[in-house]
């Protein structure tokens, strides 16, 4: 088995991916990351952990799918996943943009109403 990851790097990978998962957990607990956006990160961290334990995993799956060099599979899956997630984030930003616009307009209209009420009162 010459495709197997050496033990030293395996231990580093396990530690790092567990740490990553713990960090995501901490962000959610502290309310800095909303649950709906955490799914993909938890999922990603779990995959990292899976492959750090399952040493032959990458080679096995690459062979199964007929990918010639195993690292190419990693790049392909990762880039594809990142693109989709980026698109999702753009959608989220667009929604926020729209909501932000509506809120600001509403504030401007309300400010005007309040000032009118105040000036009506002072006239009386």
């Amino acid at each position: 088995m010459n495709n197997v990851v050496p033990v030293k790097i395996q231990i580093i990978a396990i530690v790092l991916s567990l740490g990553f998962l713990a960090y995501i957990g901490r962000l959610i607990v502290k309310g800095k990351l909303r649950e709906e956006y955490s799914f993909i990160w938890v999922f990603g961290a779990l995959i990292l952990i899976l492959f750090s334990f399952w040493r032959e995993g990458l080679a096995v799956i690459a062979k199964l799918l007929g990918v010639y060099a195993a690292p190419n599979l990693v790049f392909m899956v990762a880039i594809f996943g990142i693109f989709i997630y980026l698109l999702h984030l753009s959608v989220v930003v667009s929604q926020l943009h729209e909501k932000n616009k509506k809120l600001s307009q509403e504030i401007a209209l309300l400010k005007n109403k309040i000032e009118k009420i105040i000036s009506d009162k002072t006239e009386k």
Partner: peptide, 16 residues
């Protein structure tokens, strides 16, 4: 006077 709290650009301003 309608006073927007953030800059919305021409479209958002006119729409207000």
């Amino acid at each position: 006077l309608l006073d927007l709290p953030v800059n919305l650009g021409i479209g958002g301003a006119v729409q207000t």
